[in-house]
Design a binder for these strands. Structure first.
Lengths: 137, 137
DNA sequence: CCAAACTGTAACAATTTTAATAACAATAAT
DNA sequence: ATTATTGTTATTAAAATTGTTACAGTTTGG
């Protein structure tokens, strides 16, 4: 996973969640994130592909949630942005002539699956509505 | 956290755990990891600073565990290599003129602490001895 | 005591990953 | 028609990570 994708997606979704069904442009969102609209659209593309967000092209277009924020779990977001395990493997293939080198990645894979699952379960206990409510108190 | 540090440290510690109190050189360890001895020594430096490993300089020197592998928890390793949160923040400071931008990082910080803690607890349930035993079955 | 085998550490180079930017066709509103 | 906006691709720039080299300092064994 690209480390910061989760934070960026949560930020975007929080804005959409609080904008009350308005179409929000990538320009406005980029302003809050202090980044580039094209970057925001790339992130939005993933959220749209996953069905969490819908887009409207053309003038006065933008993005909005497809379902209420209290029906979106932070674990859903994790699942969307998660491309790899949270922990990474060593960049080089370990030495297969060594017993440890031969077996380590398989063992790590099993461990990493367990960790990913634990994070998923933890994130399942918070909805986007609960999270974004903190931001306007 | 540098993503792959955990995997590399676990690999090193597994080798030390299975080498039965012998001093293991960074050259041997690098051979199993298929990387450079200097890189291994850098990782070892962190493990030594944390008191998990001790080094012996000079000829026939090397590294070994300071305590039995069944008294080392994978959570100990996590704590050593973890420099930041598992999840990262967006690289830019969010816009403080936006209510969401102003509050988001604080809210994320709280969430990230919870996630780190969940991972820590999960890793606490496995010892280095249990992990490395899988590698030689 | 000397040569050899190590560690520990710093500095630097190379590579890879990530983020930023630019560009533009397509679409919709006014 | 003109303007605002998405969706997408390509490219450049920046940052992070990994690899490499070098060498002083420490032990061991002959």
């Amino acid at each position: 996973m690209v480390k910061s994708k989760f934070a960026i997606s949560i930020h975007i979704l929080s804005l959409l969640s609080l904008s009350d069904s308005e179409w929000l442009s990538s320009d406005i969102i980029a302003g809050s994130l202090n980044t580039n609209p094209a970057l925001v659209r790339k992130e939005l593309a993933a959220l749209k592909e996953a069905g969490l967000v819908e887009g409207k092209e053309g003038k006065n277009g933008g993005s909005r949630l497809t379902r209420p924020a209290n029906n979106i779990y932070l674990s859903d977001v994790f699942q969307i942005v998660k491309e790899n395990h949270i922990f990474g493997f060593s960049p080089n293939l370990p030495n297969p002539a060594c017993p440890v080198g031969r077996e380590i990645n398989g063992a790590l894979e099993g461990l990493f699956d367990i960790i990913d699952q634990a994070v998923y379960e933890k994130l399942k206990s918070t909805t986007l509505a609960q999270f974004s409510a903190q931001l306007v108190s």
